[in-house]
């Protein structure tokens, strides 16, 4: 029987255009999804449960609408969910502390998460939570085998594959290729609406003071300048290529 925890985040679908309002990205008028890397984590968690028995608890931190990301996890096979509700945007340090506090209240053998969120892209929360809980971690996982207390994993290290061995309890973060996330079945989506979803706030976790510390502030947010229209060559193909090579070599000096 394995106590499995998944930490996840709701993000906007990056297929969408980003709109900036002041120092914030407009999250109102965009499609919100379960962070793709976290989807691998949920799938792996459900597979572990199917193989070893036990239960999966999905935990997130965020605004009330983040509930739908938890419902997705529940529809995929998680058993219960915890939403630490908070309107403020907090930094990675605070988020890790909040998640660690929420996890500490539960029994756990393994914690899974995505290796990064596609919006903030910092890759911090997983290892930070492991540090807060003083357990080992393995990041960017592409394969996971658990036998008793023993963990054997493959991780992606910039294209190389590292085979890593460790022990439970552990935190792992998922890389693309770990698995093929399942689509929830329609009956499971309806059932997920009845699964327990607990809402807690930061005060419940006794963290109000800890997270009120300002470690950084966003002072500017902008979109990269639009590129000038590129030059599309025309005419004889060889001459096009000659022109291009000359430009890259002599003008741009990138070769």
């Amino acid at each position: 029987m394995m106590n499995i925890v998944v930490i996840l985040k709701q993000t906007m679908d990056l297929e969408e255009q980003v709109t900036i309002e002041g120092l914030k990205i407009d999250n109102e008028n965009v499609e919100l999804i379960l962070n793709p890397y976290d989807e691998y984590a949920v799938e792996e968690a459900v597979k572990l449960k199917e193989e070893h028995g036990g239960g999966v608890t999905a935990i997130t931190f965020g605004k009330p609408e983040a509930e739908s990301a938890l419902r997705t996890a529940l529809a995929m096979g998680a058993d219960k969910a915890i939403l630490v509700e908070q309107e403020r945007e907090l930094d990675e340090s605070s988020i890790a502390k909040i998640l660690a506090a929420a996890i500490r209240d539960n029994e756990f053998d393994i914690i899974l998460g995505g290796n990064m969120s596609v919006d903030n892209g910092a890759s911090q929360v997983g290892p930070r939570v492991a540090e807060e809980l003083d357990i080992p971690h393995i990041s960017t996982l592409t394969k996971l085998d658990i036998d008793g207390e023993n963990v054997r994993a493959e991780r992606d290290s910039e294209g190389d594959v590292e085979i890593v061995e460790s022990m439970l309890p552990i935190l792992v973060t998922a890389q693309q290729g770990l698995n093929e996330p399942r689509y929830p079945s329609l009956p499971n989506i309806m059932k997920a609406k009845k699964k327990p979803l607990e809402k807690v706030d930061i005060e419940d976790l006794g963290l109000e003071e800890v997270v009120s510390k300002v470690r950084s502030t966003v002072v500017d947010l902008y979109q990269p300048p639009k590129k000038k229209k590129g030059r599309i060559f025309a005419g004889d193909l060889r001459q096009q290529v000659q022109k291009l090579v000359r430009l890259l070599h002599e003008e741009e000096k990138v070769v």
Partner: peptide, 20 residues
């Protein structure tokens, strides 16, 4: 100290000031 970092896969850039 202010760091610039890309967010949203480079669709936006964020400047963050350090207070630590």
């Amino acid at each position: 100290i202010i760091f610039t970092r890309p967010i949203y896969s480079g669709k936006a850039y964020q400047k963050k000031k350090v207070h630590d």
